[in-house]
Amino acid sequence: MFIEALLGTRAQRLFMATLLIQAIVVLVMVGITFRMVDEHVSFTLSGYKTLPCYLALFALAEVFELFMAADALRLRNIIQLVGILLFHLALIVSAALQVHQTRDALINGSVDCSDPTATDYLINCDVPGSLWRKIEPFLIVTPCVIAASWLIMMFWIKQLYGEFGWAIFHIVGANPKTKTMYQYYQVEICLLKFDFFFFTGVTMQLLIVVLSRNSAEFGVTIAAIPIVLGLLMGAALAVRREIKWLMSISLVMMLAAETYCELIYKLVRFYEPSSRDQYNTTRATLTVFTIVAFLLLFGTFTVGLRCFSDFDRGLLPSKLHDSNKRPKYSLSGNSSGNMSQRQSSYNGGTMLAPRISIE
């Protein structure tokens, strides 16, 4: 069996190519929509802030997904690839919701659509030749392209599963308990990465679309950014280095953020009568993002507890070796040597196939 370098196989290259092509097409569709609307309306008006937020959110999502895919291939992490598939599903939902939200932002009842001579008739009415009819095809193409790329990604991830499925063996050996502990560690690190995106997505929508700079909630949201980012980085460091005191603080802060910020405070603000109007054009997307962020944070907390219980049980050397020493790949010219003479640097003695040489 050969160990291929990053992007050294057809499956890896075509998986990344699928994501790259999809990202280009989606950003072009969103960019065209943004330009067409920008020619007719002012984005400084609160009702039209949905579109620049939509563009920024999808630009962030596509860059994040490309980074996560490259990182998963680099680490040979099949769990992270499955996470990318789930993240892609969330993108499909978000893109589909955006069609409805953009229509609500444009067709807002501010114009008498029964009078063709009314000002802004072709901007704020759903009639032939109107702005909405022009941008609707571009908005619909976006979720369709993302859905098609998701099906193609499933095929390539199936190929990559066969390619990467044995990689954990070379890191932790054949012990089933150690393998299970390492898999929980991988899930926790993967969840922390996705926590970062969804927190950033909710914050971006609140700051761009909803909140006034003079409001108390704007200040609270700004203040929460370094706290949450510090929490995520601290949790990642704690679980990797098995720092008990830091992991304890991270778990307590996760529970507090989950109870106050995500579930009670934000979701109630979206729907309570005193504040629901300011979330009118983004309520659906914000609700989806907030619920997903809550579920991810709850999952991170739960898996974090399991990882905490695995501290000091012999997994630390594998974590540190996996994160700090990447294998160098080369093909040995001598295929007739004794298998016992070829040891894995990952496991300090795990026997590998005769033609593998890992330095």
Rank of each mutant, 00 (worst) to 15 (best):
D195C: 15
V220T: 14
K177W: 08
I171R: 14
A238Q: 08
I157H: 00
K193T: 00
C190A: 15
G201D: 07
V202D: 03
L131T: 01
T178M: 14
T180G: 04
L192S: 09
Y121A: 06
Q205G: 14
N175V: 11
V220Q: 13
Y185A: 06
E163N: 07
A174V: 11
P176D: 10
A223Q: 01
I227N: 05
Y184A: 09
I171S: 11
A235V: 01
K158Q: 01
A223F: 10
D126G: 04
Y121V: 01
W132A: 06
T178R: 12
A167T: 15
K177C: 06
E217K: 02
Q186I: 00
V187Q: 03
I189A: 06
V220D: 00
S130Q: 09
V228F: 05
F194K: 00
W150K: 02
T178H: 07
L122G: 06
G230D: 10
L211I: 03
A148Q: 04
A235Y: 00
V141W: 11
I123Q: 07
L229P: 08
R133W: 05
I168C: 03
D120T: 09
L231Q: 11
A238G: 12
L237E: 12
V202N: 05
F197W: 09
I171Y: 10
L131N: 11
P226V: 11
W150V: 04
S130W: 07
L231A: 11
E217W: 01
I227E: 04
L211C: 04
F155R: 08
Y161C: 03
A167P: 04
A216R: 08
I189T: 11
E136V: 05
I140T: 13
L237K: 14
C125Y: 01
I135R: 07
N124Q: 13
K177I: 15
G234E: 10
L160Q: 01
F155E: 03
T180Q: 13
Y184C: 08
L122C: 06
A223T: 00
C190M: 15
V209H: 03
G162L: 00
F197G: 05
G165H: 12
L232P: 03
T200Y: 01
I227S: 10
S212H: 04
F196P: 04
F198A: 05
K179M: 14
M154L: 14
F218Y: 15
L206R: 08
A235I: 00
M153P: 03
I222V: 15
K193H: 13
I168Q: 10
I168A: 09
D120A: 11
M153L: 09
G234T: 13
A167Q: 11
A224L: 09
L192G: 03
E217F: 13
I189M: 11
V127T: 14
L229R: 01
I189D: 02
I152C: 04
I189G: 02
L207S: 02
A235G: 00
I222T: 02
P137C: 08
A235N: 00
K134L: 12
L131S: 03
I146R: 09
I168K: 06
L231P: 11
I146A: 12
K158W: 05
V210L: 04
F155K: 07
G201N: 08
C125V: 01
L229C: 14
Q159N: 03
P128Y: 06
G201A: 15
W132E: 06
E163T: 12
A174N: 13
L151K: 02
Q186S: 08
I222N: 06
L160Y: 01
L211G: 10
A147D: 12
